[in-house]
Design a protein around this nucleic acid. Structure first.
Lengths: 362, 362
DNA sequence: TTGTACGCGTTATCAT
DNA sequence: ATGATAACGCGTACAA
């Protein structure tokens, strides 16, 4: 800045005025300064500005290390020659980072941050030294969006002393953090109302995921409360219990079909699955066993993953507007930053029920 | 920091020593300071540190505003109640941000940045004030990765005065920037060698995209040079010319089929398409018209998009390791930062030819 | 309309 | 082993 000032024959404060379009500067002087700036390629130091302004214009986003299904996202070593490979099967690949949950959170967060005039720094909390580096990040941002479960409580509490922290997804946090979550129960409720009200189904069965999981509990609760409101029987515990994987869906489906074939139990009219993967497992087995979907049994999922659109029959599901999660989280942060005295918020982004063929629509 | 020092009964220098694990500090003193730090929730100011260290520990990534196919990525207004919508067709949706080109670049860049002990700030250069904000970002980072075509040359040159800039994708830049690009020609070359060498095809036809496009030109050149090397006829211009869209692929396919049916021209033995979308358009029409792929004609794509794995027959294609692009770009930046006197680099990430059924493999 | 001088929170140097 | 103090590069009262 001194160099610019010298070259333009003015003082540093005049340069500052020009750069920030503050105060009064004679047109001629401004032109001179601007010329010097472009000639020298001067870009003001963000660090120095941040120091005096007590504001960095940066927001941080902390993501966990893996995709929702626990997919390892590690990249292999860099390759050098053009490879020629026989790609024989669909394999596990194809689940790109961004199509997954957190990529969408990022997309929404970046969008909102840009709108609010902030840049967004993203940090995936990977093992070595995750803690130290997150603390470091906290020192360079004005606020932090953290995906629930990513950081230990102690660290969270520590950094919250310095910058506002908004938690995303997961359960409502214990401490005094802002929180933005997805609406698991309400989505299932609307879905169940549709199955019962529109398609006239009455024998619904919930296919749960790993026990104790927050999302799973909420979804089951939504199922129960909807059932209760509609006068249907309400199970105390899910009869079908998997672990969110497609494979577990297949196992459950085999069990359901076997029970039916052996006369032990009637086929339910609808299988309301805790997530899309589980539902896809059901579709796999049901179609293989000749049970028709949706004619013999309706199947629904939850999440709105891509495969739910491309399978056959296409899967009716509850879509989570994950990008909106990130967007709202940043919005809350923004509000917090604008007025720190604001009370803590706990927002819920509404989900969307996508009616497709697997529930009998069309 | 003064507060911490006061509470621990030491000077700020000692606090600094404890925080940075520098110099000598008596164990007892250190404990005292650490206690004060956690009690006060002290997090050192990144701005102040950056000021003295002349290093922010932040890298920036500039992304363009839209997906590769020009898909608008704008998010709609926030919704509030749970919606119930009939999702009747595949539609244009489903192309999530991250599964697209730039999300993958981001993923690779973030990974490399983390490995090199940097955080990554991402900025999508959206209209209003994109320039001012990018300049601002340049002031807070140690280096910048910019996707080619995202920023005007003047701005690029300006910020390059302050931080090293690495360009990603696009043509090799004119100025003295580092550059990391994809290997369009080489991928096609290997693919053509495979078609000719392994499958014994000799009548190959290139289906090009919009004329003048850098990628398209490079791919056509690769096609030509491979043909030449193999003693096949080399067209001066592509006979088939679309615009990268699936629809244009369909139109070209209709033309090819019509020419064949009318006896005007023989069916080529292979259609080497400039991208996957075009190839998918070919598959659509050929299968509808009863032309068998790969028996009557082989079809290949370029890009490695998801749909190329899920279509039928699955599409042989040249996969661009886009995440590696971001990874390499950050790697170059890192090297530049470690030793600024290094010469400019122009790296190329190798592509991968994925052999699937549409070319006759299996 | 422009210039001077202080302070933002750290780290590094030098003294003690 | 610890403390005092001068930068770091900028914004901004305040003086001119």
């Amino acid at each position: 800045m001194r160099d610019v000032a010298g070259r333009a024959g003015v003082s540093v404060s005049t340069v500052s005025r020009v750069v920030n379009a503050h105060g009064y500067v004679k047109a001629g002087t401004r032109a001179l300064v601007e010329k010097a700036i472009t000639e020298l390629g001067f870009v003001p130091s963000g660090a120095a500005r941040g120091l005096v302004a007590r504001r960095t214009g940066l927001l941080g986003l902390c993501l966990p290390d893996m995709g929702p299904a626990g997919v390892q996202q590690a990249l292999g070593p860099l390759r050098t020659p053009v490879e020629l490979v026989e790609d024989s099967g669909p394999g596990p690949g194809g689940a790109t980072w961004g199509s997954l949950y957190f990529g969408e959170v990022l997309r929404g967060a970046e969008y909102a941050a840009w709108e609010a005039d902030y840049a967004l720094a993203v940090a995936v909390a990977r093992p070595p030294q995750a803690e130290a580096r997150v603390r470091d990040l906290a020192g360079r941002v004005d606020g932090l969006v953290v995906v629930a479960g990513t950081l230990p409580d102690a660290l969270l509490e520590h950094v919250a002393h310095r910058v506002p922290v908004v938690l995303v997804a997961g359960p409502r946090p214990a401490g005094g953090y802002d929180h933005v979550g997805v609406d698991n129960g309400e989505g299932i409720r609307v879905l169940v109302e549709h199955l019962v009200g529109v398609h006239g189904l009455r024998d619904l069965r919930f296919a749960a995921g790993r026990p104790g999981t927050r999302d799973d509990i909420d979804r089951f609760r939504g199922f129960c409360s909807a059932s209760r409101a509609l006068g249907l029987p309400v199970p105390a515990e899910p009869v079908l219990r998997g672990d969110f994987t497609r494979d577990s869906g297949r196992r459950l489906a085999e069990q359901v079909v076997a029970d039916h074939r052996s006369g032990r139990a009637r086929l339910p009219e609808a299988l309301v699955c805790t997530n899309d993967e589980t539902a896809l497992g059901f579709l796999d087995v049901l179609s293989a066993e000749g049970v028709r979907v949706p004619d013999d049994v309706a199947v629904t999922g939850f999440d709105g993953i891509d495969a739910a659109r491309t399978c056959s029959p296409r899967l009716t599901t509850v879509e989570q507007p994950v990008a909106d999660l990130g967007r709202l989280a940043v919005g809350v942060l923004e509000a917090c930053l604008a007025d720190p005295r604001l009370p803590r918020q706990d927002l819920v982004v509404p989900s969307r029920v996508l009616l497709r063929e697997s529930c009998g629509t069309h």
